[in-house]
Each structure stands twice: as C-alpha cells, then as structure tokens.
Design a protein around this nucleic acid. Sequence first.
RNA 1: GGCGACAUAGCCAAGUGGUAAGGCAGAGGACUGCAAAUCCUUUAUUCCCCGGUUCAAAUCCGGGUGUCGCCUCCA
Length: 469
Amino acid sequence: MTIRVYNTMTRQKEEFVPVNNNKVGIYVCGPTVYDYFHIGNARIFIVFDVIRRYLEWRGYDVTYVQNFTDIDDKMIKRAQELGITVPELAERFIEAYREDAGALGVKKADVHPRATQHIEEIIQLIETLMEKKMAYNVDGNVYFDTQAYAQYGRLSKQPLEELEAGARVEVDEQKKHPLDFALWKKQKPGEPAWESPWGLGRPGWHIECSAMSMKYLGDTIDIHAGGPDLVFPHHENEKAQSEAATGKPFAKYWLHAGYLNINKQKMSKSLGNFLTVRELGKEIDPLVIRFFMLSAHYRNPINYSPELLQQAQSGLERLNNVVYNLRHLLTTLPAGEEETSDTEEKLQALQAYRERFIVAMDDDFNTADALAVLFDLARETNTYLKKKEISRTVVAQTLQFFEEVGSILGFFTEKEDSELDERINAMIAERQEARARKDWATADAIRDELVAMGIILEDTPQGVRWRRK
RNA sequence: GGCGACAUAGCCAAGUGGUAAGGCAGAGGACUGCAAAUCCUUUAUUCCCCGGUUCAAAUCCGGGUGUCGCCUCCA
C-alpha cells in the first residue's frame, strides 16, 4: 500500500515517494512570534504534527523542521509597543508557543530554527542570487527579479499579467517589476540590523525559510507545508528564489491545510476575529481543540463555534471512555482468562480495523475517516466488554491498538497522579460498604463529594471504575 | 477583473461511477438502588438547482445559484 498526498503544485493526489528512499524532510512554516497563536494557526500545527507522526509510524525516517520568524515588521512594531527589545519579544512568545503547542499535543520539531540565527546563511543565499543575476540591489535594498525566473506563478497558478493587473500593493519605485520582492531590507532608523555586503539591514520574510530549509533539509525537500494563505506569495517566492539559486526543485510535495473560519470568515489576526489557544484552553481541554481539528479532512475549511467544540468534546469523551474501560478491565480481569472461544475471531476483527485505519490515513491523511474507524471499534469493544467471558488477550490487544493510533492522532495518553489515588480508593471503599448495607444516602453523598473533586464514578459489573472530569 | 475552494440529515462530517460511513443532538427501550457509562431501535427514496453521458451518478460533463478564500501582512 502506498500513501497518496494532495500536492498543491499539481492540484491532485499523487503517490508519496520520498526523494531519498526512506528519508523524509518536512518543512512547515511556523509562527511569527509576536503574539500568542490563535486556533487557526493551531490547525496548521496540529494537522502537520499528525502527518509527521503518521509518516513516522509508517516507517519513514522523518526530519521535521518548523521555523520561528523572529524578525520582521510586526516583530519590530510589537516590541516597540511593549517597550521591549525584539529578541525579548521573541523569547517571550517562543516560550508561549512551546506551552500552547505542548498543551495541544503537538510534538516539538526536530529543529526549530530562528531567522535571526541564520543571517549568515541568508546572506550567502542572496549572494548566490546576485551572482546569478536573479536579484538586484537598489541602494541597500535587494530584490528578487521575478522576470528572470520563468516559472514564477506556477505554484499558485497565477498568470503574471493578472497578478500585475490585480495588484493593489503600494508601488515601490525602486523595484523593476511590481512582483519583485525584497530579499534584504535596508535598515530604517531605530530598527535592528545586521551587516551585509549591501549595508546594514535585515532579511525579507521569504528568504529565511529558503535558507533554513536548505540548511537543515537540503536543496530539495519532500514536503513543504503551511497555511493556505501562504501559497501566494510566500511559497511562490520561496520556490522562486530557492530554485533560482540551486537549479533544483525546492519541494516535491506542497501541502496546504484549509482555513479555520469563525462566523464563516477566515480567522486572522488582521481581521481581529481570533481566539487564542491560551484563552480557549482555560475553558476546555486543549485536546478537544485537537480532536475538533481532526474531525474534518485537513484540506477542507472548518467553521469554529462553541457548539461544535462541544460536539467534539462529546465525541472525544466517547473514545476516551472506551480506553478507560479497557485499562480498568485489564487491572481487574483475573489471570487465567487469556483466551475464550471467540478470541481468534476478535483478534482478526481487530486486524481489520487496523487495516481500515491505514487505508483512511494513506488516502491523503483522512483523519475524519480514521476517527470513524475508531468509533466503530469503540462500539464493538463496548459490546464485547459486556460479555460474561472476556479474553484478556483481546482486551490487551484492543487497548494496544487504541494507544498505538492514539500516539499518531495525539490522544489516549495515560495521566498519572498517584498522590490522589489512595484517597480516592479509600472513599470508594467506604462507599462500597455503604452500598452493601443499602445506605444509599451515604453512598450518594460520597459520590457527590467525588464529583466535586472532578472524579466520576461508574458502577460496572466488573467493579467500580473512576475517571477524571 | 483574474485564480481557486466548497455546497451531503437538526448540527458536524466521510464518501469521486454501483445503489448514502461515522460523530453530536433528539425520541423510545434495556441495564442500574439511583446515577454514570454502555448497548439496541429510531432520524436523508436522497446528496444546492437544471440539463447531459451511462445499464448505473452524491460521485463524470455542461450551465446556473449560493458561500468563502487568494491576488496586500496573514496559518
């Protein structure tokens, strides 16, 4: 079986074949660290985190790079507003990124390069472009010459004439062509700047990704990913400058997720209609946000509303419950019941679920379909757990499967907090005694007390089970 | 003006030629001391509309309508 991915470049699904055998290089355009990121940004981090984990699970040796843009106009402006330096600003929000992304279950990238730590590489790349006459310097500002690169516009499928006609960009008299973009920006008074062959200045936005991508992943990477609004001009420009410099394809597959909308409008900083993970995470388990994102295909637009998040929470709880139940049963099921008459049949059924999961994910990472497979298995498992004879082997392997796919999707990790367990168990024992003598009032009082502590009790044929929240 | 995406039940959502997955919510039932969790039943003769191709279309083609996005910093 092979994985198929939708490539923005060709506008169709293609068979996924890495450039170098088993090695896969992925570069995802990361955040500009001038503020907390919002749930629209979060979608990108989550979606490509899952794609990364899935490729790893499928046996690829993945190197995952996600940058931090720590110098640009917005950084400078925000630092001034807050009365701190640009590096201080960057530090603050990189730390915030780590916390928020971590809460969402997003793994750290193998490398999180920062633009300001790669000025040398950026300058070298610009020099290469100057030597090749693909860039020109006007009084300390260096621009990429889009007219010198024949393929410009191919990624975004934008005819050059139309881009020009529709351009509402303010005319920069220095540029030879309106579409030309800055590789190096001359320092303005009070701005951070670095030495360069063209004088003091700072890198343009697009060039940092090219330079860092090449440094960590080579001239041609397998997957270059980002938000849909990066297709043009950011990725188009990255592609142009990179390929102009190396003469090689920059990325084999271009992946772009869909928007996260709110009230049917794109959520964005500039529209001011955004909701940060930091804020929302106070009201709801951030993993619910993650589940919500994965409940639709990553390329489709999804609309945010509190009601939909509520739906997602219910759905995730259903899956969490079956995993809780399996874990609980594994601790209470007596030894010596490894197999029952239908063990073989159940294990085969489990194998079929595994295959369905793979088919779904192989098809352009269809997490919505993959979750449906888990819901089907959840129903079958719940039914099985009501039976008189339960095979320990089936329980263990079903749990193992849930935990395995959980490690791809980012769910079902066991939370440990043993310090409370003892007290909870004592209260449960006390309640059981009350129940034994049919003292329902005491039993219910203890249960209410536990609920107040965030513990939910369930009386099951296999004993009392408790879980958090 | 150019380019593009999307339109499936009350809500969310998969499905790209073979006769509508899954989740949430609702209703009824089972289980339970009561709950919780769970299970069963139930909710689209139909996939925005109109044509066409085909034995067969939600799926392909043409036209239309609607919503959104990109073309400017944005994930």
